[in-house]
Amino acid sequence: MTGQPIIIMDRVSKRFGETVLAVDNMSLTINEGDFVTFLGPSGCGKSTALKVISGLLPVTSGTITITPPTGETEQDLGFVFQDPTLMPWATAYQNVFLPLKLAGIKPDQAGPRVTEALKEVGLSKFADAYPRELSGGMKMRVSIARALVTRPRILLMDEPFAALDEMTRSKLNNDVTQLAKEHNLTVIFVTHSVFESVYLSTRVMIMAARPGRLAAEMSLETPWPRTEDWRTSAAFSAEAHRISEALKRTLDAEDIDH
């Protein structure tokens, strides 16, 4: 199911100032079509890792190689932040249009693509709504549509659903999986929820803090994308148990007062 390597991180470290080693010596190869979750307690460097991969932050040492895209995209990499991060003065439509606008694409050319992206996240009817008129889940959908409008190969998501209620979150988990499959996306999804990581991903990277690092990798063999009834199955519980155990072992190993 997974293809060629698309992101190769080789001994990547990121330091803030003298004392904080947010990412320490991280090596990881992500293949095309992987759905990877970074799972770990807060402060373990998950967001920093994403920002380094996206190029928003420079690495302190090490290299990150992303294989160049073959097709035409305005931005090969979509980023979804923990907050929806929408421009409050702009409608849903204008927010999704932004990446194309910044790429210099004319409104009439971009129009169909923006409309299509909004349709994919189920917000066709809300194109003219302002962010304040949308629910938390809908705002997140706009944010996802904005990330997808440039037709990226890679989607980075930083705890996107952490602030949402359980029902909305499950729904969005299904939709993200679906979108990832349809667009053949490679996804790195940051979360601190074991259940979310088990449901969504093909590979779980467990991260530990101080310094932030990869502590363990677990693969999930259950066919992907998963279905809603798998969420309530015994197999799901077993997988969640397995990941929780691994996470607990790394937290215990950190030997600090959690």
């Binding site: 996206s54 190029g55 931005q75 980023f79 907050d83 991060t85 932004l98 790429a103 440039t150």
Partner: peptide, 18 residues
């Protein structure tokens, strides 16, 4: 301006004018 929005503009290679 929101720092995440700033990051977003950086990600999409916005010019200083944009």
């Amino acid at each position: 301006a929101d720092h995440n929005l700033r990051d977003l503009f950086t990600l999409y290679n916005a010019t200083p004018w944009q």
